[in-house]
């Protein structure tokens, strides 16, 4: 369970997050949606202790992020950042292997190597394993980063716009992988999405943010109504139903 209590964040006097309180249970997919600048990435980076907390508390499975050793947290929670491009000559396999670091501390066991190969295959980068990252296309690089995050094998995954640069095939494949992970292994994904229909189809819960506040929180059926969507995104859009799931015609 992830517990977020009274979380606020300000930057040079400008509030970025205001008084966020959330409880995220174990198992399932939580989609974080909202317009640009709503504070989604800021929230994820506070949960993942990438930035120091200013006020409030974040607790992962009874472990407060501010006082728990980093390695302990890294075995429970992995984060994929929105701008996760690294410098340096690194092959895809080397990058993905680093995902095992919290477990192996660099001395990888045969199990670690098997997990790496599995992740490479799962996200279709096995053929690119020996290529240097800087020689990949944007989507290929994103898949390598996703593979690394999965490879960390944590109960909680925080994914900031993981569908960036992915084609439809790989976007669907990633969402299906997350669904399987949540259903079969009781793991949890918190995923920032701009494609609201991916959230509608795959998420168990949608949390919508605007101006640093949570403005809607519930199942896709609850949140994806014309009124709520207008409140979140600032314009009205039609919503229909297909196969029992809402479909938002946001582009019309």
């Amino acid at each position: 369970m992830i517990l977020i209590e009274d979380l606020s964040l300000a930057h040079g006097g400008t509030p970025i997050l205001r008084d966020i309180n959330l409880t995220i249970d174990r198992g399932g997919i939580v989609a974080l949606v909202g317009p640009n600048g709503a504070g989604k990435s800021s929230l994820l980076s506070l949960i993942a202790r990438l930035r120091p907390l200013q006020t409030g508390r974040v607790v992962i499975d009874d472990l407060p992020v501010t006082t728990t050793p980093g390695r302990e947290l890294a075995r429970r929670m992995a984060i994929l950042r929105q701008d996760g491009v690294f410098a340096g000559r690194l092959t895809v396999r080397e990058l993905v292997s680093l995902g095992r670091f919290p477990h192996s501390q660099g001395r990888s066991t045969p199990q670690d190597r098997a997990r790496v190969e599995e992740a490479l295959a799962q996200f279709g980068v096995a053929d690119l394993a020996e290529r240097f990252l800087e020689t990949l296309s944007g989507g290929q690089r994103q898949r390598a980063l996703v593979a690394m995050t999965f490879c960390q094998g944590t109960d909680y995954l925080l994914l900031d716009e993981p569908l960036n640069n992915l084609d439809m095939f790989h976007a669907r494949h990633l969402m299906q992988s997350l669904r399987r992970m949540a259903d079969e292994e009781d793991r949890t994904a918190i995923i920032v999405l701009h494609d609201i229909n991916q959230a509608a189809a795959y998420a168990d819960r949608i949390i919508a943010m605007r101006d640093g506040r949570v403005v809607a929180d519930g199942t896709p059926q609850d949140v994806l109504t014309p009124d709520t969507l207008a409140e979140i995104f600032g314009y009205r859009m039609q919503v229909t139903q297909i196969g029992g799931k809402p479909l938002v015609l946001h582009h019309l």
Binding site: S45, A48, R49, L50, P69, G70, R71, E72, L73, A74, R75, A78, I79, R81, G84, F86, A87, G88, E94, L98, G99, F101, P102, Q105, G106, R107, Q152
Partner: peptide, 21 residues
């Protein structure tokens, strides 16, 4: 040497992998 490989990924990625930056 192994920890340095992680440090080379930069501050955020290293923290994400459990480095006390």
């Amino acid at each position: 040497r192994h920890r340095l490989d992680v440090v080379a990924l930069g501050r955020e990625a290293a923290i994400g992998l459990g480095i006390d930056w």
